[in-house]
Design a protein around this nucleic acid. Structure first.
Lengths: 356, 356
DNA sequence: ATGAAAGCGCTAACAA
DNA sequence: TTGTTAGCGCTTTCAT
């Protein structure tokens, strides 16, 4: 029924060891023999049994990918990148979605990856200490995307740089009162994005010599509804901003809605820039900070493969971001909505401020 | 280093055969012995080696899931459903994304699932005849979601019913001139959604005694841009519809944009209903046809597990849909609709040609 | 109810 | 360069 290595060996007139060597491209096999073996294998439609091979080598040629949720553009892209890179190196991808509380608990409790994978990839999942300990206990090469944990390789975006690029874009347009809708530190400690993006925001303001006004920082909780509320409160303040930097596109979407509902227009009355380049950002014509996504999966895989080969110790990657300029940002207008006299006549130059 | 079944056997004072039986819950093991074995296993932190087990049984306890693309809400949900169901039955999920032409070709050429999985799940991937033949050649239980192929189990939504429910909703609101933006048959034959949804549309019109007007059927190519063009052309016709049924939410989004750009309003001037309940539908307040998504993954898994147990032959499921009423549908207004001049068409800034 | 032993299909020393 | 052989860790007859 199933053709085994013995069948191939018999047909090629060699031993099974030779077949194994020949098919895996090991040296010390004459080209003639290798051809013979290949022909036999092809003729018999032979496929190596991964279980047998794993059992013999102790390797599984499989990487476990742990992800909170699959159906979001971002994760999909990262997974695609990872899969391509893995497949290229002959690895399979075992998927674990642990978004639901229950499944997450079970995953870290039972660790179903044990004995099943050679390495682990954790995507955008800030881990608790106990969870980190569980993963560490596996003693497998592990890489994380979107979070950094000592001892594991990691791939993250440059949140600080991205945020300051976004804010610089607004500054270059001539804005001076620039608010920020942030997501407060609701998540575990490793989720450094809110803090990093805040730092980027502050440093951009500082290096432009702009005042820092704490009343211009509002919490949007990283949700659309939160962003809407935050924007509404900003608009109703006595001295509203002319531009807003939202720490996520979702919050920016909410902000757009709030602006519309307040009877104002974007970008004529208020400019908005988001962060993420969410799938819908293009559709809603949102200026935002984009990150290379697929690449992060590829990089993470690079890390674990290197570790697997014993070539490298855990290391961190910080990937750059760039501002995608769309229709929600424009120079401030000298409208009565603003109480202060705007400093005008800064060249529009949308393209020039694009950070590559 | 790694603890094996022998270690457990030694510690429990039984044979390896007994350990195997005890741990797998087989009968013919005294409760006392079973407890002893369980304790030993727990104490040693024993985990069965899947490779060894696979090699011995010929089963992999793994299911291959083939999907064109991971990062879309729909696929994510289906995968989640499938994974939960699989995990519950002790199966792992091996992921294959074949969206890219290249990866798709390689998948069906090399069939990397051979010897690796016990069954295959194909999600929303209309297969060519050659691809069907390749999968069939695996001789593995196979289920498809979103397409039906003779010989394989399948799970699909009731496209005909869904479409007619959507159109009935419009009819119940009082609409009489109801257009349809469809996606023509660009895909392989198995992609029956366009045709089925058209049938639902027609049957709803027919049973309401409404006239059928072929000029009210426009192609939107299943894209946002196409939907926008289609809607624009409908609006510019001499006798525009008061309501539109779009065969997909994406096309509906485009339609909404066209309406806005024409200076009209939805639902005051035109009602729009979509199909899919896309992630963004709620955000854009789109009335649409929703389908149970996670459930389709669960059902598909049910099929293959049943086949795996030899309990069932391939069979088909048709899952129901329901209309989600939101803000884009309303009764037609009495006053004749006329397009106003778009006030802001010039004000739009560069880089916004997302509708390309 | 339990044990002994023969594989499952491959890889990796070790020999030749 | 190639062959021999001993595992890898489990399951499954077949005995007992």
């Amino acid at each position: 029924m199933t053709v085994s290595i013995e069948d191939v060996a018999a047909r090629a007139g060699v031993s099974t060891a030779t077949v194994s060597r020949a098919l895996r491209g090991l040296p010390n096999v004459s080209e003639l023999t290798r051809e013979r073996v290949r022909d036999a294998a092809r003729a018999l439609d032979y496929v190596v049994s991964p279980s047998a091979s794993s059992l013999a080598t102790g390797r599984t040629s499989t990487v476990g990918v742990v992800v909170p949720y699959v159906g979001r553009w971002f994760f999909g892209q990262v997974i695609s990148g990872a899969e391509t890179a893995l497949r290229q190196s002959g690895f399979d991808l075992l998927l674990y979605t642990v978004g639901a509380e229950e499944s997450r608990r079970r995953f870290f409790e039972e660790l179903p990856v044990r004995r099943r994978v050679d390495a682990v990839l954790v995507l955008s999942l800030p881990l608790t200490d106990a969870e980190v300990a569980a993963i560490a206990g596996l003693r497998l090469p592990t890489a994380m995307v979107g979070a950094s944990v000592p001892g594991f390789s990691s791939v993250r975006i440059d949140d600080v740089g991205g945020a300051s690029k976004a804010v610089n874009h607004l500054i270059n347009l001539g804005h001076q009162r620039i608010a920020m809708i942030h997501g407060a530190g609701i998540e575990p400690a490793q989720f450094t994005a809110p803090e990093d993006r805040r730092r980027g925001y502050l440093s951009a303001l500082a290096s432009a010599g702009l005042d820092y006004d704490s009343s211009l920082q509002v919490d949007g909780g990283f949700t659309l509804a939160g962003g809407e509320r935050a924007m509404a409160s900003l608009l109703s303040s006595k001295h509203p901003p002319t531009a807003v930097f939202a720490q996520s596109d979702e919050m920016a979407f909410g902000a757009l809605r709030a602006i519309r509902r307040a009877g104002l227009r974007c970008p004529e009355d208020v400019s908005v820039v988001g962060f993420d380049d969410h799938e819908m950002a293009e559709m809603l014509d949102l200026t935002t900070v984009a990150q290379p996504v697929t690449e992060q999966g590829v990089l993470a895989v690079g890390h674990i493969l290197a570790e697997l080969r014993g070539e490298a110790a855990p290391s961190d990657d910080l990937v750059p971001t760039h501002v995608v300029i769309r229709g929600t940002t424009a120079p401030p207008t000298a409208k009565p909505m603003r109480a202060r006299v705007p400093a005008r006549s800064v060249a529009r130059s949308a393209g020039s401020s694009s950070a590559g």
